[in-house]
């Protein structure tokens, strides 16, 4: 790896941008790929370059057979993000667990008595309305959205934006009855039944969770399952 490629990788990493490095195993020649930009001495044809871009988008390290021989593709990505709507009790252990699992957590709650630094020390807090916050934060295919408020005025606008995004996981706290009422409201907003199938509700794996920390475990476990199982399915 030469110094220019190392600097390009470091710059992307420091700025939180996704980039890939393709290396030909036979001779160590390399190509740095970020969006439409490439840098390096490894010449790839269009099909190989597309395969590298696919790996970049799928966040997947691994080897590819190309016309240039075997290349190893390594993807550098910023942390996945989880937007937690509702600065409620469950959110407190959840943000701690998200940090351990390498997520960047953002807690969104316009109720100023909930979203306080003392309740969430060191956590990124947003006190604007959830739809406005999400318009600004732009959830992508590497994002998760979790709604915890139980209040349709707050949860529904968040779910609206989540469903309009490519986020990989949507979970909504609330009983089956709450979710049936929610489904009705979201159908009235114009979402289809299959759109609503993306929402995990009641939220979390069914492990009999009782305490806030246990519920947070159930949520993070389901998020992990959704993320990793879909990766497995893509590989198969």
């Amino acid at each position: 790896m030469n110094g220019r490629l190392l600097e390009a990788l470091l710059a992307a990493g420091r700025d939180g941008r996704s980039a890939a490095l393709a290396t030909r195993i036979a001779d160590g020649s390399q190509l740095f790929v970020e969006g439409g930009r490439t840098l390096g001495d490894l010449a790839l044809d269009e099909a190989a370059l597309q395969a590298v871009r696919d790996a970049l988008r799928a966040d997947r390290n691994g080897s590819l057979e190309t016309s240039a021989g075997r290349i190893f593709v390594e993807v550098m990505s910023p942390p996945r993000r989880c937007f937690v709507v509702g600065a409620v009790h469950i959110a407190q252990p959840l943000v701690q667990m998200l940090a351990l699992a390498d997520y960047r957590a953002v807690v969104i709650d316009p109720r100023l008595s909930f979203a306080t630094e003392s309740r969430f020390p060191g956590v990124e807090l947003r006190t604007d309305w959830p739809d406005e916050a999400l318009d600004d934060l732009k959830p992508d295919h590497r994002s998760a959205v979790v709604t915890l408020t139980h209040d349709p005025k707050l949860d529904d606008p968040a779910l609206d934006r989540a469903l309009k995004s490519e986020c990989f996981y949507i979970g909504a706290l609330g009983s089956r009855r709450t979710h049936a009422a929610r489904t009705k409201r979201l159908l009235e907003r114009g979402f289809s039944k299959s759109d609503l199938g993306r929402i995990h509700a009641p939220i979390g794996l069914a492990i009999g969770a009782v305490s806030p920390a246990e519920i947070a475990i159930a949520i993070l476990a389901q998020m992990t399952q959704t993320l990793r199982r879909s990766e497995e399915a893509e590989k198969a």
Binding site: G3, L6, L9, L10, G13, M76, P78, P79, D102
Partner: peptide, 16 residues
């Protein structure tokens, strides 16, 4: 991946 970033940062320092 922050792990990778830290390792590359150290590599860059050694190189310098």
């Amino acid at each position: 991946m922050s792990d990778t970033l830290e390792i590359l940062e150290q590599a860059a320092r050694w190189r310098e």
